[in-house]
């Protein structure tokens, strides 16, 4: 794997550890962590903080028969050891494969103009997430952001005004950033992109198209 240079922010790691991110963001975070040992370790730290916050909470008495009830449940439903599925190697890490029901070859692409294709993944809770395929050398129209946009590169690379983003890299964009991501020459760039608010396209044509593609 190429070296990952762009990582999750502390706010995203803490939000994921706390369990307060929308599902679409959780998917992008879990997919990046599957590819990145640095962020996996950082997440362990943020989860440890959660554990200590929980320990510090003033204990609230359980019902008198709580332990008996819990033991009864344990005895009623003995645990079944689930055999661990053999790891599958592909372009997509496991959390993403769950949403696509397979790897890259299972994606149902839909053209959204300018050569770019997408597949929207079904999630709940106030943010959306999609796979994007940007043909090598193609630009995504110039746009700004009303909220947070997470773009995780799965294959290929793109370059924008800020830097180059290769496989495993994640760009966290917010209101302050206007950019025109361009896929590098070579292979098509495949990204997992989540937003919690619609993008702000500058050009008129992309703005009209936006109504139909819902980005």
């Amino acid at each position: 794997m190429t070296k990952i240079k762009h990582h999750l922010t502390d706010a995203l790691l803490m939000g994921y550890a706390a369990g307060s991110l929308p599902e679409a963001f959780n998917l992008v975070v879990a997919t990046h962590i599957s590819m990145c040992d640095t962020c996996r370790a950082a997440l362990a730290e943020f989860e440890a903080v959660g554990g200590e916050v929980m320990l510090d909470a003033d204990p609230v008495d359980m019902a008198e028969d709580a332990l008996t009830a819990a033991m009864a449940r344990i005895m009623a439903a003995p645990r079944r050891e689930q055999p661990k599925a053999a790891p599958v190697r592909g372009v997509f890490p496991a959390p993403l494969r769950d949403y696509v029901s397979g790897d890259l070859d299972r994606v149902k692409w839909r053209k959204i103009g300018g050569g770019v294709s997408q597949m929207v993944l079904k999630t709940d809770g106030g943010a959306s997430v999609r796979l994007l395929r940007i043909p090598a050398g193609t630009a995504v129209p110039d746009h700004g952001h009303r909220g947070t946009e997470l773009t995780l590169v799965l294959q290929g690379a793109f370059v924008d005004e800020t830097d180059r983003f290769g496989a495993g890299d994640i760009e966290v964009a917010n209101e302050d950033l206007n950019h025109t991501p361009v896929a590098e020459q070579g292979v098509d760039c495949i990204c997992l992109a989540a937003t919690d608010a619609p993008l702000r396209f500058k050009g008129l044509l992309p703005r009209i198209a936006q109504r139909f593609i819902g980005i």
Binding site: P22, N26, T31
Partner: peptide, 10 residues
């Protein structure tokens, strides 16, 4: 929240 929680790959 009745949401699914994607977890990182082992």
């Amino acid at each position: 929240r009745k949401q699914k929680r994607p977890e990182p790959e082992d």
